[in-house]
Nucleic acid binder design. Sequence first.
DNA 1: GGGATTTTGGACCGGCAAGTCCAGACTGGG
DNA 2: CCCAGTCTGGACTTGCCGGTCCAAAATCCC
Lengths: 204, 204
Amino acid sequence: MPDALTAKGRATRARIVEGAAEVLREQGVAFTTLDDIRSRTGTSKSQLFHYFPDGKDELLLAVAQFEADRVLEDQQPHLGRLDSWESWHQWRDVVVERYELQGDHCPLGSLFLQVGRSGPGARAIVTELMRQWQEQLARGMRTLQENGLASPDLDVERTAAALLAGIQGGVTIMMSTGDSTHLRAALDTGIAHLRSTKGATATA
Amino acid sequence: MPDALTAKGRATRARIVEGAAEVLREQGVAFTTLDDIRSRTGTSKSQLFHYFPDGKDELLLAVAQFEADRVLEDQQPHLGRLDSWESWHQWRDVVVERYELQGDHCPLGSLFLQVGRSGPGARAIVTELMRQWQEQLARGMRTLQENGLASPDLDVERTAAALLAGIQGGVTIMMSTGDSTHLRAALDTGIAHLRSTKGATATA
DNA sequence: GGGATTTTGGACCGGCAAGTCCAGACTGGG
DNA sequence: CCCAGTCTGGACTTGCCGGTCCAAAATCCC
């Protein structure tokens, strides 16, 4: 068991996860075999099971965690600094670009569908990702309120939840149709909704 | 080949599609075999291939179409009559209820992931569903404008696209986390956004 | 009612991919 | 330099599942 991992061991393990993530993004989980991953990462069957004793599911779960981390990282530093309209719009652009580049396979969506049933592991990863994402959006909205740029009456949690849902759906639709119109519409409408609440009260 | 289908034949075919849809909703496409479908529908292997000569993919595609039709049907008649705030709220309730009952497997999402690559068939089904759905939302919004309940300055297509994305994402998140908060937030915020635009101009 | 056609049953095949196993190579510490 | 532990290669096994096939039953049409 990988209780004690050598530096080399850790490197190999990381190589497997990253390579697997690549292949999965390209082919989708349904069409990816362990042999695909093995050949891409230049490893052997035994290594795969050495580092992931529970087999494919465990590896898939590790990839899911890897991808989940990437999602928020790729939005930084913008997501952490949503304190002006300009920063909101910069963030918007980053999100659109990131998902347009990603191609037509949602790593997390498909991974979840595959592993979903088998345990609470996958669910926990997605839930935690959504929680953090929404939290950062909510923080940005509260900053706007503090700066007098948005109404203090705004229901921040609900609005953040709605915006997150819009992004999520926009991405889903883009994966299915190849068109990013809905993602842009969700982001723009969400931000416009925030802006439209200003002017109510501007405590200096 | 199913050029000529007897009444009995048509019935069997329909039974297969409906039964397959059930099983797929329960188990997810990744864990459903033709034998599962065969046993659920009380049919034999040869029947499956008699009615769907191209095998599993063709059957899955038929199920996808079946489910896509259901999506809009289940929202009627409310979706077709979005002419007052009351009707919008009724529709909202129907949507939430429908997806809360559906359980934790998105038939279309997973079907798309499976068949997606193999051809434009699946993509076309999803694209067409989204188009019709958005069109009906847009029509409802225009009705509101005509009735002086929403601002004529509202960008109807964009707002409809954003609302659709919100629903889609809300459903996706609910599938992953088991929590319908985001779906409700998306619907409520979307409708609230519509309402907030009124009063601007009310041409009688 | 009889022949053509459709529908049905289920045994069978073949390939693929997950997982096992063991022998051998590397590594790191004493 | 040697031993214990880790890492690696790859052949092999195994079970599953999509797909094929043919013959028998039911059905339809004349």
